[in-house]
Simulated scan of single mutants.
Amino acid sequence: MALVALASAKGSPGVTTASLVIGALWPRQVLLSECDPSGSDVAIRMTGPSQTALNPDRGLVSLAAAGRKGIGDEVIMAHSQQLDGGLDVLLGVRAPEQIGGMGGLWAPLGQAFNQMYGSDVLADCGRIGPQSPQLPVLQSAGLVVLVCTATGSSVAHLRERISSLVHHVDAQLGVIVVADPKRRDGVRQVWSVLDQMTTPIHHRWHLAYDPAGAAFFDGRGVGRLDRTSLIRTGSVIAAEMAAAVAPRTSTDFDMAEAAFPSADTGTAGEYRQ
């Protein structure tokens, strides 16, 4: 299946909320993994089925201890938990101090995520930089998405991180701008900045800044979640992101052959009556 890594260049523009929203709306089986070395937010913000508390000690740390002889689908899922609503999640560390004993985990974990048989993986990598320990997870991803806001400082850090990241990862790059739906001019300004860069950005999305919708992913929601602008924009992002990393099938190749026939069936570009 596919590994998608989401991260920020600076601060907290909403990577965890974006990851939770996209994971909840993902059209295939998906696992959300917290790979942010600063500590887990999901265990604090979310609950398990029937409002039960999540076990903060079951996640990356327990996986690191159990996976010394190898990490596969069964091992990963054995240390995952399910949120109320059905999303599978691999909780991150409780505190940054726990990262010290996990130095050798990141590279095999990224490879295992990318090779999972029955599930896509969304990795919430938090803030990243050249020395970030979770960088090997991004290096294993097929799609790396940076989350930013439409403020000048956030966009400046975004440019710097993209310029640096392109030397470390070989993946499609995407950007999610978290902005008020009424501030489309700010989003367009971000796109304009990206257009001036030499690094190609394959995917661009606008996720609504929507405190009322985000409250549902912090245990404080009231009303109809499906009517929020967060869910409306998140649905589009989840569908397009999943399509971008979907494995190609024989049908895809047949359609490509029909659109661009090989030399023995006709000349490319030839029009026939």
Rank of each mutant, 00 (worst) to 15 (best):
A238G: 05
T149M: 06
R184W: 12
Q134C: 14
Q82E: 13
A66T: 12
R227F: 10
V147K: 03
V169D: 04
A256E: 14
G118C: 10
S163I: 07
A214M: 09
I162V: 14
R68C: 11
V155D: 03
V145L: 11
R220C: 11
D226C: 11
G67R: 00
I44C: 09
D120W: 04
Q131T: 15
W191P: 00
W26G: 00
P261E: 03
P136C: 08
F217P: 02
Q189K: 14
L165Q: 06
Q81T: 07
K182E: 15
M1I: 08
L143M: 10
S229C: 12
N55F: 11
P247K: 00
F113Q: 01
Q29P: 09
E257M: 12
R272W: 12
A259C: 12
V144P: 03
P200E: 03
D57H: 14
L6R: 02
A150M: 00
A64G: 01
L3S: 08
S8Q: 08
S80M: 07
Q51K: 04
H167N: 14
A268Q: 12
G11H: 05
D252V: 09
H206S: 13
L6P: 01
V147E: 07
F217E: 06
P27R: 00
D170P: 04
R68N: 13
A242K: 01
R232Q: 15
Q98D: 11
A123P: 05
V193C: 11
E34C: 08
T52C: 06
M255S: 15
A156R: 09
S192M: 13
M241Y: 09
A259R: 15
G213A: 08
I128R: 04
S119N: 10
A43C: 08
I22K: 03
A258E: 13
C125E: 04
E240R: 15
L83G: 02
D88V: 10
I162D: 05
D226H: 13
L20T: 07
G103P: 06
H79Q: 08
V178K: 01
T199A: 05
L6Q: 01
V178M: 09
S38P: 03
S33W: 02
F113T: 03
Q115N: 15
R204Q: 12
G14F: 04
A212S: 15
G103K: 13
A64I: 07
F217V: 00
R94M: 08
I162N: 01
L194G: 04
C148E: 12
S50F: 13
A179C: 14
M116A: 05
A2V: 10
G70V: 09
I162Q: 04
R220D: 14
Y209P: 00
A107E: 15
G14P: 05
A64N: 09
A256W: 10
M241H: 03
R188L: 15
A259Q: 14
I76T: 02
M241Q: 09
